[in-house]
Design a binder for these strands. Structure first.
Lengths: 228, 228
DNA sequence: GTCTATAGTTGGATAGAC
DNA sequence: GTCTATCCAACTATAGAC
């Protein structure tokens, strides 16, 4: 009915594809189903996208974009390292657990990408995006809490992404939100373990405690495992 | 050609399904493709399995079984905790990295299971199996190295599985075997952190070092992040 | 028990009217 | 730009000959 410019139509179709795929799975996101969801006819989709793979790539690009955006928001004012870390990880998990379908779709996209040459770039972009986002989050923690990491940020980012992936998968399977949250709090405790007061950034703050004791305490508090 | 008893024919078809799905992906494992791989005609598959879902369930059961079996083997004689842990994790990773297709198929099965009611049990069985296998591996480490964990085994198992999953996914995407191995060695260092000498098992061994210092040293050595 | 043949769907892609 | 109609391929599943 409505006559729209192609670019706008594309956005509408990508949105529809995301809706269908998040709700019913990647296999259900057929060209027909996407067209129906958007309320347009089959031909329109093929007019806007060369083939189905291009639609899937566009959809993947959209979902990784919103994932990256999600983890950026909501960082409180400067507080203790533990509080800042917990806030970031908590916000990250809220974003994940309130979008179960999207999260599952992300993994479906990853595995699909690893099988089909058409989508080869998708998985690489997903993880490049995740690692970058994790590094940025770590950088924000540094800035907000006035600390630096005793380990390269890129290595730390890889651990965080791996553990979040692992807990997300487990949560998708057994739905145990508590276990995931406890696991992430433990990861937070472990991260605090690796934070040391920044040398010059915030003067008049480095007098209280030396890093080494802080580490040991944080380890006992939570480390990577839920409190016994 | 050959006339086989049904049970044997089923095994052959399951094997064929695993071959196709590991090589070309779960979507390529159609009834037709499995029949062709096994060298039988289409009707035979429907004679042995009620429908495709039953074949997929059987295939999933087979792959989780061999995964569990894989992590059991190869545990050296008693040595230091670090050596035993590294041996177990190393063996685990060898099993994963030499079967890329199977590993990817496992994740495809998980996501498929989470979408299709027909396969609802598959993912639950996968993770029940993984967690159990991890707990058993942890128990074997306890026995072989003469230690106990300062944290519930079930919690520890969940961390191990999550991290292995996360690193496996990342490795499937970027193929960085080094990063995965380093990450797992770090996990090993972290696990050693939580191991304390067993109270009564091996007498004449608890005199040297008290647990607390051991923890701190292990943390500095490796923890969860590759050595800087 | 095994095969061929075929029914019945579904999905990707295109042609051509409007 | 949009829609209808259609082609073609691939899939699951079954029926029936041998």
């Amino acid at each position: 009915m409505n006559r729209l410019p192609v670019a706008q139509r594309r956005e509408q179709l990508i949105e529809a594809a995301l809706a269908v795929a998040s709700r019913d799975g990647i296999d259900a996101a057929t060209v027909r189903a996407v067209a129906a969801e958007a309320g347009v006819s089959l031909g329109v989709v093929h007019y806007c996208f060369q083939d189905k793979a291009e639609l899937m790539r566009a959809m993947a690009h959209a979902i990784t974009g919103q994932n990256a955006a999600g983890s950026l928001a909501g960082l409180a004012a400067d507080a203790g390292v533990d509080q800042v870390i917990d806030a970031v990880l908590g916000g990250l998990w809220d974003g994940i657990s309130t979008h179960r379908g999207s999260q599952l779709l992300s993994y479906e996209l990853t595995t699909s990408s690893l099988r089909h040459a058409d989508l080869a770039q998708v998985a690489k972009e997903q993880y490049a995006g995740s690692w970058t986002a994790a590094e940025q989050a770590l950088a924000m923690i540094e800035q907000a809490a006035g600390v630096t990491w005793s380990v390269p940020r890129s290595d730390l980012a890889r651990v965080v992404v791996a553990l979040v992936d692992g807990y997300s998968l487990a949560w998708l399977v057994d739905g145990d939100d508590r276990a995931a949250r406890d696991g992430l709090r433990s990861l937070g405790g472990y991260l605090a373990t690796l934070a040391t007061p920044a040398p010059a950034a915030v003067p008049g703050r480095e007098s209280a405690d030396e890093p080494t004791d802080q580490r040991t305490d944080a380890l006992h508090d939570g480390a990577l495992v839920p409190d016994a």
